[in-house]
Write a protein that binds this DNA or RNA. Structure first.
Lengths: 200, 200, 200, 200
DNA sequence: CAATAACCGAGACGGTACGTCGAGTCTTATA
DNA sequence: TATAAGACTCGACGTACCGTCTCGGTTATTG
């Protein structure tokens, strides 16, 4: 399922056993403030100081948890495990459209729409970091798509990965440009294209 | 034709008749510095102060010509009239692949790759400005695509605009993620997908 | 004469001929805020941010002029040329007491009292910088003292520099500890001590 | 005798009888770290956090024992009972010089030299606290000086307290500025001055 | 040919975000 | 029940870029 983004994220890695434990309300407040600012003011205005201010938290409390704005936002909009739209029944004709619609809806969620171009900029000089983001968000979709096609037993005229890239690229670009507006129609069109290729 | 980006751009519209005229070498230097910085250091590091520094020019000389970093970059990477890949012979089977390859190559030009996510961020709270960018870059492509299909006389099973969006979205996403690497293969795949839909 | 501390100080060294000239009101405001804060809140609370705030000026405008808090304060409390108490008539018996009183009064000026221990701390690991401060403030006094004694034609039983150090050390310590309270009496005592040595 | 400063000091007054007892090694480590930092890096760099770090101890463990950096340092450099240079034989001519030298040597001890200006700054807005420091360090010297002069039976031309202030002020200022360098010569000069006054 | 006006580089200006550090306070597990 | 450790808020640090401004000086067109 395409998940909502409401969980505070498990923050950093290991929790040390001694000393005052981190206040989970701080995590929640930062998480919440980040998403709010992303949606309200965009990526650029979502500065760490603004996040701290809105969360009612000090800047060091943010830096203690995340080493950069990019990491914080990455984790806020891509909480692990909530990324892969699930495959559906198995009938290509009926399934592909809701599947596409699901992806388009997911990519149109305001914080995701706002975060993606920002992360692209941030990681412009660090392709590996961007690959990490892709891994967390795209790879699960690609897997479910592959699994889905495997169930249908088809051998398309176009390599499956390329076909997936066409589908996702179309939906991704649409989401960036128009958000959820007209999602249903466009998802239908994309699904139709993929279906035709599969049936050819 | 997909154009190279080497010309200093005619800057602002009207040239006032009185007073000292602008030094065209300043325009050239800013233009050049902008593209260089975009490619070398990415959108974020391409600050106006850095551009001025590299161009050997003062910051006000930049602001005199462009009111913001976004406008400057927009003009530097999308010099008017150089945007529309030209249509080709008319035979769908043979034309579509070079056409897609042309678009993918164009979108993979380093300054364009670097500029697009930055402009997306910059215009996050100003969709109209982003539409202006789209108009300058996408609309000519869409027109040529329509004209191209008109020549073939086909009536596809998917609305032409949606089909174009699928094609361009796929190529755009590919360019953002991988640049020109493997462009030929992917362009072939995209062309195949479109062809299949057209022939269906 | 022992000078008042009211002048904005000529700021940095050379004034460059190009670029927007510095706003002299900014200099004045910083100078004034520094002295006020020193007197009201002490050396420690006289932070650069607090100075900027009180002067109604941005922090960078302070850093543009002085590279550190120490330099700023040094210049604010020791404006060049106002440091040497002048020698008096020439009669040891009558002169020495007002001379000592003058020095004690000078060292008791609130900003000086407040600044000296702070500068001592600041330059604890940079004795040369402290020597520079001494040069600006003590050396003129020492010179005038020497000149003064030369006029009397005496050859004291204690080296003149040591005698000066005893006199100034006594007055300096008194000023640090008690300020101007009971200055007259203490100046008389110090003058008496020096006189006795000179007459011995 | 002028005492060395090596003992950890008995910390706070009362030792509570209940609960986990304090680890005395923590006291020792803090004490040692404080003196080391004072000498190596100066008063300013001797932050409580740095002390805790060097002592291998947490900051609250320091605050539990001393309520402020000033108190900690005060106690570290002026351990009670080690402050008064002892009076000597009783012959003014021969005694005064070693007495002055002793004081000068004491005030030149690196931690004391480093601590004094810092404490002056710290107590700039709390003269009573500074008086407390003076009481602990100067008053014993003043008493021994008075007792010393009483033994000689002299009635000097300058009030004894003022004479003491001249002597100590001269030595104190010398110690702050030059430390122990040339101590012997300067002590001789100071002693000569005092002697002359006493004999006059 | 003089006046005018827009340009030029340089740099000051008030703001704001950056990421770090020290000051003290608090909360928890541990002894 | 006090300790030790670390998270907490707060605010100063010094730097960078923002976009604007003021300056002295230059270069063209206009009167």
């Amino acid at each position: 399922m395409v998940g909502a983004m409401t969980e505070p994220a498990p923050a950093f890695e290991e929790s040390p056993r001694v000393g005052r434990p981190r206040d989970p309300r701080v995590d929640v407040a930062i998480h919440r403030a980040t998403l709010e600012l992303l949606v309200e003011d965009g990526y650029q205005a979502t500065t760490i100081q603004a996040i701290a201010r809105r969360a009612g938290v000090s800047a060091p409390s943010v830096y203690r948890r995340w080493s950069s704005k990019a990491e914080l936002i990455e984790e806020a909009v891509f909480p692990s495990g909530l990324l892969a739209p699930e495959a559906l029944s198995g009938d290509v004709i009926t399934d592909l459209q809701p599947y596409c619609e699901q992806i388009l809806t997911y990519l149109s969620e305001p914080p995701i729409r706002a975060a993606i171009p920002g992360l692209l900029v941030e990681y412009q000089n660090d392709p590996e970091m961007w690959q990490r983001v892709v891994e967390r968000s795209v790879t699960p979709m690609r897997s479910s798509f592959r699994a889905y096609l495997a169930k249908t037993g088809r051998e398309p005229a176009v390599p499956i990965d390329a076909l997936f890239d066409v589908m996702l690229g179309a939906l991704f670009t649409r989401a960036l440009n128009d958000g959820a507006a007209g999602a249903k129609e466009f998802a239908r069109a994309v699904a139709k294209v993929i279906t035709v290729v599969l049936q050819q």
